[in-house]
């Protein structure tokens, strides 16, 4: 195992972890306000399509990312209205988003591109190319040859960590997820924060989906989210509802997937199914070691009715 193998493995880990970081952080913001949104797969799917479509039309990946975020917000408002205003079951509406949003994405895709067999491709977002630095052995490509979205993903983690742990606004936000009624007695606008959490969740999930089609793969294929929404959901539990933990969980998932791909390619005579199991087996092992005591915000998934005593 040479340094080139390790360097490429780490590069692949980052590539595969970045969309997960956006999606899992989206869920973190949601759950911290008590909103258990399992509709991440659907939100990412609509973000992915809208991001691709807008990039295809305008030629700008940035506009694609922005529109992907807006699409995510728009679709997540269905979930927000149903669960916050109507106090409906979070799981049911999350599942509804998972069914509705990918179908909507397919529908829009067919309306725009028609039922043709042509593969539509876009130009991906350029990498930040700091001349000289990207040629530094080992760390150069990893740190200095990525798209701006990669740096933004890690900046988002730092910001989120500071926001939740070092700011009054963040503590108020977390209070809504822990004990909304107590928070309300302190004058914290519970409903507004719950809606805000849905806006952030929709936006970040949409960005995660749009990242896939504007920075990673230059085509949109229905089904391209490929379970990343559910992995993002697991990463929040895995990361124990902290920004740094979620990021490490996403890097871990990305690493396991990148590793299984490379082990398959190395042709060492072991059946490929064994390698495909690695991400799942590793998750079960780590969850059984780390899981247990901490179970996240106390009021997650519970409807908030201000008129109740």
């Amino acid at each position: 195992m040479d340094s080139n193998f390790i360097s490429n493995l780490l590069l692949a880990t980052v590539r595969m972890a970045v969309p997960l970081i956006f999606i899992a952080t989206a869920e973190l913001y949601s759950e911290r306000a008590g909103m258990v949104n399992i509709g991440l797969e659907g939100l990412a799917a609509i973000g992915s399509l809208v991001g691709f479509l807008m990039c295809y039309i305008t030629g700008s990946a940035w506009i694609g990312i922005l529109c992907g975020a807006l699409a995510g917000i728009l679709v997540n408002m269905i979930y927000a209205f149903a669960t916050v205003t109507l106090c409906a079951n979070h799981t049911v509406y999350g599942m509804a988003i998972n069914i509705f949003a990918p179908a909507l994405a397919s529908f829009i895709n067919r309306i725009y591109f028609g039922a043709g067999s042509q593969l539509n491709q876009i130009k991906l977002m350029d990498t930040v190319n700091i001349s000289g630095l990207k040629d530094i052995p080992f760390i150069g490509p990893l740190l200095f040859n990525q798209t701006p979205m990669v740096y933004l993903a890690f900046a988002l983690v730092i910001f989120t960590s500071i926001f939740f742990n070092r700011t009054k606004a963040g503590l108020n936000y977390k209070a809504v997820g822990e004990h909304p009624k107590a928070a309300a007695t302190l004058g914290i606008p519970v409903i507004r924060i719950k809606y805000l959490s849905c806006v952030i969740c929709g936006a970040l999930c949409g960005i995660g989906g749009a990242y896939l089609t504007t920075c990673y793969s230059n085509t949109f294929t229905e089904g391209n989210i490929a379970g990343r929404g559910f992995i993002g959901l697991a990463a929040v539990i895995f990361g124990r509802w902290s920004a740094a933990g979620v990021m490490l969980a996403c890097l871990f998932f990305g690493f396991c997937d990148a590793l299984q791909i490379r082990l398959q390619v190395m042709s060492i005579g072991i059946p490929y199914q064994f390698f495909q199991m690695i991400p799942y087996v590793a998750t079960i092992i780590v969850l059984s070691i780390l899981g247990g005591k901490k179970s996240g915000p106390a009021a997650k998934g519970q409807p908030y009715r201000p008129e109740e005593r």
Binding site: A12, S217, T221, G223, N224, D257, R262, S267
Partner: peptide, 16 residues
């Protein structure tokens, strides 16, 4: 449908 997997496999195989 996961074109991302295709990207990663191709990169790993080109490394080989």
């Amino acid at each position: 449908s996961d074109s991302g997997k295709g990207i990663e496999f191709a990169k790993a195989m080109m490394d080989q």
